[in-house]
Design a protein around this nucleic acid. Structure first.
Length: 487
RNA sequence: GGCGCUAUGGUGUAAUUGGUUAACACGCCGCCCUCUCAAGGCGGAGAGUUCGGGUUCGAUCCCCGAUAGCGCUACCA
């Protein structure tokens, strides 16, 4: 075991702001967060924005928004690599001075051409190291004369570079397979290879938990740690998240941005729980359970539970987590979340808060997502709601039924009591009197009251809505015009 | 193409690390409940562990090979 495992861990999430926070990044952030919290360590947020072409401030904000939504707080940062260029230049200097790096005067065009030639000839397209042999004095002179040059790392000619990955075990690469990669571009901006290690060293990171897509980059980093004479951190590569077709998750598969899930009405805790179990397992001791609070996740999390194979993002399972969380939430907790939805949907609930909470309580077992509160459940909160056409044709198409509902409204208007028992009694009695099945009136009432064919128990709905509203809505369907659906 | 990694029902994962009728959850199907839809209860289908070789009394588990998928292969990160 590396000795630094005994220190309190320092980990980081280091997204590059070339896009919003996507699910893979969110999962990496989550794992780092869980790890840090589990050990009482430190989570650092570092924005890797050295690609000025593709990075943007809006994306930085988007990433922070995603982190906040998921409830992933960090202890240090955010640091921006674009503001730490001196560190990278100094690190490059160090490598240059110790002979681990050299100036390369090849231009981008030359390199591209040679790569194409190599590919055509069936040779590996690696850099041919031609500038490595330029002696230092000449190189310095050319640079001093103003010739543009990059700085490349001098990869050892023979042997192999390996590291012990906390999830994959020993991973080894022949040095002959590693090219002399660029550390500093000719404009003085570091490449990822340099800035990661410079920062990871400077920030005293103990564990690097990141996507498995970085496995192949790791030997380049290990080489630099050695050249710099510093101990390597513990690497833990996390398998990737794939789409349902087992190809890399992309827009093709639907939402890839975390915020899109917020907009779909997913509860952040549900998303977090779902994400935590993608590529990680708390072990056989907990295999009979899938719902874990964040405290439990923190307590249970460990690198040894991370699996080696890629995981497929399953929307159905996410939906299940979401319904579980919504159902388990207190109405009070759901209220602000529902409010957001009402605002977005231009729905202004006019009822007293106690009634709104009661309605939420009634509805939450049937909610699939937060959007339902402003969509299918709108009639519980506002008197302005629409009728689902399918529900209408299914249960209110019959004019006779509509007429009976009008009559029923009068019965309710005259009723003194208005409880679940009494309302049911009235309806069933009325149905019997009219010689028809109660079901037809119940279903019709449901649509009249809620606009939907699906709802909680009708009489519970009536009590929640209140006598006045029930009477009004039942009476209103009498004059409803129902068009035959187009065949 | 080269290099690396991975491989248990449709999906996520278990399997005391060589001895189980291969387990759990999601999804799917059916039944019950019932005023609808969920939920809930009960039951079911679905993998013999990618394939082929070994090692072993015995392999999901160890070894080799093949195949497939993914990743990397930039003066992107």
């Amino acid at each position: 075991m590396p000795t630094n495992s005994k220190e309190t861990p320092r980990v980081r999430f280091a997204p590059s702001p070339t896009g919003y926070l996507h699910v893979g990044g969110a999962r990496t952030a989550l794992f780092n967060w869980l790890f840090a919290r589990h050990f009482g360590g430190t989570l650092i947020l570092r924005i890797e924005d050295t690609d000025f072409e593709r990075s943007s401030e809006a994306m930085v904000e988007g990433i922070l928004e995603g982190m906040r939504w998921l409830g992933l707080n960090w202890d240090e940062g955010p640091f921006f690599q674009s503001q730490r260029l001196e560190l990278y230049r100094a690190t490059a200097e160090k490598l240059l001075a110790s002979g681990h790096a050299y100036y390369c005067f090849c231009t981008k065009e030359e390199l591209e051409q040679r790569r194409a030639e190599a590919a055509a000839a069936g040779r590996p397209p690696m850099y041919d190291r031609r500038c490595r042999n330029i002696d230092r004095a000449t190189a310095a002179a050319r640079k001093a004369a103003g010739e543009a040059c990059a700085v490349r790392f001098a990869v050892p000619e023979g042997g192999a570079t390996s590291f012990e990955d906390a999830v994959f075990g020993k991973v080894e690469f022949a040095n002959s397979e590693i090219e002399d990669f660029v550390l500093l571009r000719s404009d003085g901006i570091p490449t990822y290879h340099l800035s990661v290690v410079a920062d990871d060293v400077e920030m005293r990171l103990t564990h690097i938990i990141r996507g498995a897509d970085h496995i192949s980059n790791t030997p380049k980093q290990v080489l630099q740690y050695r050249a710099l004479g510093v101990e390597t951190p513990i690497f833990a590569h996390v398998p990737l998240i794939l789409g349902p077709d087992k190809t890399r998750l992309s827009k093709r598969h639907g939402a890839t941005s975390v915020i899109a899930y917020k907009e779909m009405g997913i509860v952040p805790e549900a998303f977090r729980n779902f994400l935590a179990l993608l590529g990680w397992t708390p072990g056989s001791a907990h295999k009979d359970r899938e719902i874990f609070s964040s405290e439990e996740l923190i307590e249970l999390f460990g690198l040894d539970g991370i699996s080696k194979s890629n995981a497929v993002f399953d929307n159905d399972k996410l939906a299940w987590f979401n319904t579980e969380y919504i159902r388990a939430y207190e109405a009070e907790r759901l209220l602000p979340l529902a409010r957001e939805e009402w605002q977005k949907a231009d729905c202004e609930p006019t009822r007293p808060e106690s009634e709104i909470l009661a309605a939420i309580e009634l509805l939450k077992p049937r909610a699939r997502n937060l959007k339902d509160f402003a969509g299918a459940f709108r009639a519980y909160f506002s008197d302005e709601f629409e009728f689902d056409p399918a529900a209408v044709t299914k249960f209110l198409k019959d004019e006779h039924v509509r007429g009976l509902l009008g009559e029923l409204a009068e019965r309710y208007a005259a009723a003194e009591e208005f409880t679940e028992e009494s309302t049911e009694q009235v309806l069933r009695g009325f149905a019997e009197e009219k010689g028809m099945k109660a079901g037809a009136l119940i279903n019709g009432s449901r649509v009249a009251l809620t606009g939907q064919a699906v709802a909680p128990s009708l009489f519970a709905v009536m009590v929640n809505l209140g006598k006045e509203r029930v009477v009004k809505r039942l009476a209103a369907v009498k004059g409803m015009v129902v068009e035959e659906p187009p065949a």
